[in-house]
Design a protein around this nucleic acid. Structure first.
Length: 224
DNA sequence: AAAGCTTTCAACCGCGTGGGT
DNA sequence: AACCCACGCGGTTGAAAGCTT
């Protein structure tokens, strides 16, 4: 929070909003609506910039703003969306009713970014009781699925026949079920987080996907 | 208890974009 | 085509709150 003060050049107030200012803004918008942010503060009797008013309204005063902790579901949506969209906070927030881009951005920097970078930089440090937090017993086993996921995805998108050898698993979406076959241990080079992001990008056409494979579940539920 | 450090998050700032002239 | 203006977005800041020593 910034301390209330004034901009010497413009005479406009800056810093934390008082309850009175909030009430003035709410009262004005309730009565006249939003017509021009830069002109509105003057008519509303506020010594604030239009930008400041807009920000205060959009992020805190607007009806239906959701406050409080983010749910696990919201966490997953943010992490998944961020892997696909990058720092497009507005686009990510649009997937979370009641959450603002600012709130999502802050939450990402305060909580979620660490979870991803922690694994990116030093996955070994997450091993506990001889097993990583991702459910794998060693790094090879943990990294290979990332690379493997793309193969799985590719197979389920392009093959529905018996052309794939070896093990069989099932991938289902809300409107279809596709059998696919793969050979997990054929995957030779370890994957990276970029591979994982690529996986989610390719997966996006399948909404509400349920994956009948432990490694896929590992990434969708535990890693994120 | 208090000093120092870290985290959180509301608010600000600069820039890009799009519409109007 | 060039300029202006309003708006929206994303990065950054810094006070307050929380935590640790």
């Amino acid at each position: 929070m910034r301390t209330p003060n004034s901009d010497m050049d413009t005479g406009l107030r800056k810093g934390k909003w008082s309850h009175e200012e909030d009430q003035m803004l709410i009262a004005y918008i309730s009565r006249y609506g939003i017509w021009n942010w830069s002109q509105m503060p003057r008519f509303a009797g506020l010594s604030r910039s239009g930008k400041s008013c807009r920000l205060r309204w959009m992020n805190y005063l607007k009806p239906n703003i959701k406050r409080g902790n983010f749910s696990n579901e919201e966490d997953e949506i943010i992490l998944h969306s961020h892997s696909v969209l990058g720092n497009k906070w507005s686009a990510i927030a649009s997937k979370l009713p009641g959450r603002t881009d600012s709130e999502v951005k802050n939450y990402w920097h305060a909580h979620l970014k660490k979870r991803v970078s922690r694994y990116n930089k030093n996955p070994e440090t997450h091993e506990q009781n001889g097993e990583s937090e991702f459910g794998c017993n060693n790094m090879d086993e943990m990294e290979q699925p990332v690379n493997h996921l793309n193969k799985v995805l590719e197979s389920c998108l392009t093959y529905e026949d018996d052309s794939f050898p070896s093990s069989t698993s099932t991938i289902t979406s809300k409107d279809q079920e596709v059998d696919f076959r793969y050979d997990y241990y054929d995957t030779s080079s370890p994957g990276t987080i970029d591979d994982l992001q690529s996986f989610w990008q390719q997966l996006s056409p399948f909404e509400n996907l349920e994956l009948g494979n432990t490694h896929l579940n590992m990434f969708s539920n535990d890693f994120f």
